[in-house]
Amino acid sequence: MADIILETQGLTKHYGGVHALNDANFKLEKGEHVAIMGDNGAGKSTFVRQITGVEQRTSGKVIFDGQEVNFAGPLDAREAGIETVFQTLALADALDVPDNLFLGREKTKWDWLGPFKFLDYKAMRADTLAALEKTGVKIPNIRNTIQNMSGGQRQCVAIARTASFHSKLTIMDEPTAALGVQETSQVENIIRTLKDQGEPLILVSHNMRQVMDLVDRIVVFRRGRIVANLRKEETDGQDIVAYITGAKTGAEFEGAA
């Protein structure tokens, strides 16, 4: 059996009386790309928020890289090696591309100056270009501030940022929801690059074509529960839709929904 990078056992989240997520048992192998699908309100984003520490789970276990973890916040998760591209972009508009890629982990020199240590702009620019090349992102001028960029370029920067730091797990929550056709294909190219580099990924998406194109396995959520766990080769779009809408429920999940 391959190594498991992430496992959840009985992960549950209640918002007051609303059971947003119930008893989710999920496994992700190293190097595997998994899509999470489901209708609006099915619990996809809730699931992601429990893993990344944005919210605190009601009950259940999260095991990351062989250890049970309790992240106090997204920062803890990031330090442990989980990189997340959120629906709302975490970019600083007034800064340029290298500044954003290295935000919070700047390359510096003269470190004895403490908080006033100098930034190594040259090294950060070089690394930025390398990172963009590696992920295939095309940005005409990396010195441009983020506010002057299109939605797709911003998303590419956000993803390149994630991809350029060797994280143990990448999570993308609807990375192409607001993008045009060209921009979407650029983001998808980055995801393929991640796959080639053997970096595991959880992709939350509504886009059936994208999912069938990119991932190895599809996990379907419905009404706060996991209702299907399908290998891509053993399923098709219609099948998945049946699970999403509730027309079908996976054999091992009988009685779950």
Binding site: A92, D93, A94, L95, L103, F116, F118, L119, Y121
Partner: peptide, 24 residues
Amino acid sequence: RYTLHGKHTYAIGSNEDAARMSGI
């Protein structure tokens, strides 16, 4: 313009949540 303090000042003013999420 050239130090960590300055960069983080701009980052916080530009998007405080992003700055916090980035570990500042």
